[in-house]
């Protein structure tokens, strides 16, 4: 199918400036070919905060409309994934769970990993999935990826409650020993949200024009899971592989979570700071790219 794509040439036009000066005025809105690179226009986002809330609510409500079990379906996915992991990786492949009850080990990894993967996958295609909406009305585009991160946070919250139930059971039986590092959970989630938002927005800017990346992406996220200690503990890796894998900014996050809640795994402030730095850098880079794309992506999507 033929598509129409817009181009933004750099044209300096002095004429434009002169006319603006004639009617020098209190313009409240200026529509121009480009906006500045780092400006997220947060005051605008703030004005649309209700929209953010309503998007999150829509995603949540629409998910279980016309179902009988309702929000219970949020539990089904992590439980089934966990059971599958136990079967495949524990029983068939015989991977170690660091002496932890397998169900807790995998559930912890899956809950955190799903949050990252869902955010990333959905944010990366935010322009294509919302093209219908974006093509008809203006609102700060960044609301859409933010809403994805937030509504996944709700989902994560529900799944986290499930994890806590299992944790309480095993804790009561004395099989796991949570410690104070578990209190870092909000920080871990913040880093993960920033990282997935940054990475996702970076890709979203590219997928609008070159769809090839969409295919690459879903495959890439799957691979990334195996490069992250979700189904295996870092401690079981041979040092040769571990020295590469530890540079994966997601690894310290999952390891810290496991260390805090289950009492096994590794934890270091240094590596956590490393993850945070990478996340912030990805976010800044994505802001630049997203700002460049958001104005004209409609012509290329």
């Amino acid at each position: 199918m033929a598509s129409i794509e817009a181009t933004i040439p750099d044209v300096q036009d002095d004429q434009i400036k002169s006319r603006a000066e004639e009617d020098a005025g209190d313009w409240t809105l200026l529509i121009e070919p480009r906006n500045s690179l780092f400006d997220l226009r947060l005051h605008e986002v703030w004005h649309y905060r209700d929209l953010l809330f309503l998007f999150v609510r829509r995603d949540f409500v629409a998910f279980y409309k016309q179902t009988i079990l309702g929000p219970v379906w949020f539990f089904v996915q992590p439980i089934l994934t966990t059971l599958m992991f136990i079967l495949v990786f524990k029983n068939i492949a015989g991977l170690s769970t660091d002496g932890l009850p397998p169900i807790l080990f995998y559930l912890c990894g899956v809950t955190f990993w799903n949050y990252f993967a869902d955010c990333f996958n959905k944010t990366a295609t935010v322009f294509t999935t919302n093209a219908q909406l974006f093509g008809k009305v203006y609102f700060p585009r960044v609301i859409a990826p933010l809403a994805i991160v937030m509504s996944n946070l709700v989902r994560f919250g529900v799944q986290f409650v499930l994890f806590m139930c299992f944790l309480a059971w095993f804790w009561a039986r004395g099989e796991v020993q949570p410690n104070a590092a578990a209190l870092l959970m909000p920080l871990l989630i913040a880093i993960m949200a920033t990282f997935s938002l940054g990475l996702g927005m970076l890709f979203s800017a590219l997928t609008t024009k070159y769809r090839d990346l969409v295919f690459l992406l879903s495959f890439g996220v799957q691979l990334l899971m195996y490069a992250t200690p979700v189904i295996y503990p870092m401690s079981q890796m041979s040092p040769r592989i571990a020295q590469y894998l530890r540079w994966n900014p997601l690894a310290p996050l999952i390891e810290t979570a496991r260390y805090g809640f289950l009492g096994s795994g590794s934890f270091s402030w240094g590596w956590l700071a490393y993850s945070a730095t990478i996340a912030v850098m990805a976010f800044l880079a994505s802001t630049v790219v997203f700002n460049r794309v958001e104005k004209t992506f409609m012509d290329t999507v």
């Binding site: 809105l29 070919p33 104005k295």
Partner: peptide, 29 residues
């Protein structure tokens, strides 16, 4: 919805645009 290639539009006041009615309606809600 998209930006001009060159030139500028200046406006005073909020612009509400109706390129379509019921934009973003979710059928389930």
């Amino acid at each position: 919805v998209t930006a001009p290639t060159t030139g500028a539009i200046r406006a005073r006041g909020r612009i509400a645009s109706l390129l379509e009615v019921g934009t973003g309606f979710h059928p389930e809600l």
